[in-house]
Amino acid sequence: MSYKLPALPYDYTALAPYISKETLEFHHDKHHATYVNKYNEAIAETDMATKPIEEVIKAIAGDAAKAGIFNNAAQAWNHSFYWDSMKPNGGGTPTGALAKKIDADFGSFDKFVEAFKQAGATQFGSGWAWLVLDKGTLKVTKTGNADNPLTAGQVPLLTMDVWEHAYYLDYQNKRPDYIETFITKLVNWDFVAENLAAA
């Protein structure tokens, strides 16, 4: 069961001017594709080849002997999730059950935004900021490098990539500007709401 590189859920120009065509081409077609290819090469002719990628990620997390497989598996999965976390004309505020849950668990949407920005800005080096469901409660978390909340038994609802290749062509070293833009112009709240409903 090889893991297929998913097509972007929108055109390469659809997120401009916030994320450029060039960034999406490099990020999806080069970075993401490489993780997928290396993962498939690593699991070929092993018992992992028949398992869903999520199962593999959870099974080998923390196993130093399988760190290379884990890094490529988790990065392949994280990026697929990241593309769906954005949409053209995204951002704004969520509605319905998701909005109520954010208010209940964070106190307000603004407090969620503050926590999410903080997670993204303070992730030292490469990594991810997440909105997760943890034992029924919404939480903001961050992970380094390839790690993701699946390994902690949490349900990912939203992610923001803060590896430099996600934003450097468009924002250079101004990660806070990218984070602000991600929240106000790019977040796909419909995707987040679907993930919450399915959790």
Rank of each mutant, 00 (worst) to 15 (best):
A197V: 14
G153C: 01
Q123R: 15
G125Q: 13
G96D: 00
T95P: 04
G125I: 03
L24R: 15
V36A: 05
K38C: 04
N40W: 08
L24H: 11
L186D: 05
A64P: 11
A65Q: 11
G120V: 03
K174T: 10
V56D: 06
D147T: 03
A97W: 06
K117M: 04
E54P: 03
Y12E: 05
A61D: 12
P94C: 04
I53D: 04
P156E: 11
K135G: 02
I69L: 11
P149D: 09
A99P: 09
V187R: 14
Y178L: 02
T184S: 06
N72R: 00
E41S: 13
K117L: 03
D105G: 08
S2N: 12
H28S: 01
H165L: 09
I57E: 05
W163R: 14
D11L: 08
A65E: 10
V113G: 09
H28D: 03
T46A: 08
T122C: 07
M48P: 06
Y168W: 11
T122F: 12
D63R: 01
A7D: 14
G136K: 01
T46Q: 11
A73W: 06
P9W: 11
S108M: 00
K30M: 09
F109I: 07
K139M: 11
K185F: 00
H27L: 12
G136F: 00
N145H: 13
T122W: 12
Y10V: 00
I183S: 00
D105P: 14
A99M: 13
F182R: 03
D103A: 02
T34I: 07
I53S: 03
A73I: 10
E55A: 05
N148F: 05
L5S: 01
H27T: 03
H28V: 02
M86V: 14
T151Q: 06
Q172D: 14
L98E: 12
F191G: 02
S126C: 09
D190R: 07
N188I: 00
A199G: 15
A119V: 01
N173L: 10
M86P: 07
M160F: 02
G90F: 05
W189D: 08
Y18Q: 09
P9L: 08
P94Q: 11
T151K: 04
L133E: 15
W163Q: 07
F106R: 10
G144N: 11
F81P: 07
G68R: 06
A197W: 12
P94M: 08
N148K: 06
T34E: 10
T93L: 14
A67D: 09
T143P: 02
G90Q: 05
S108V: 00
D103W: 05
T23Y: 05
K4Q: 13
T34R: 09
D63T: 01
D190V: 01
I57H: 05
N37S: 10
K117F: 01
M160Y: 05
L158Y: 04
E55G: 04
D190F: 02
L196R: 10
A67H: 08
Q75N: 15
T151D: 00
V187Y: 14
F124G: 13
N195S: 12
A97D: 15
S20W: 11
H32W: 12
F70M: 05
W163D: 08
I43W: 08
F106C: 01
K139N: 13
E45M: 10
I102L: 06
D110W: 09
A42V: 03
G153E: 04
F124S: 15
V36W: 13
L15S: 08
K100R: 15
W189H: 10
A197L: 11
L169T: 11
N78S: 10
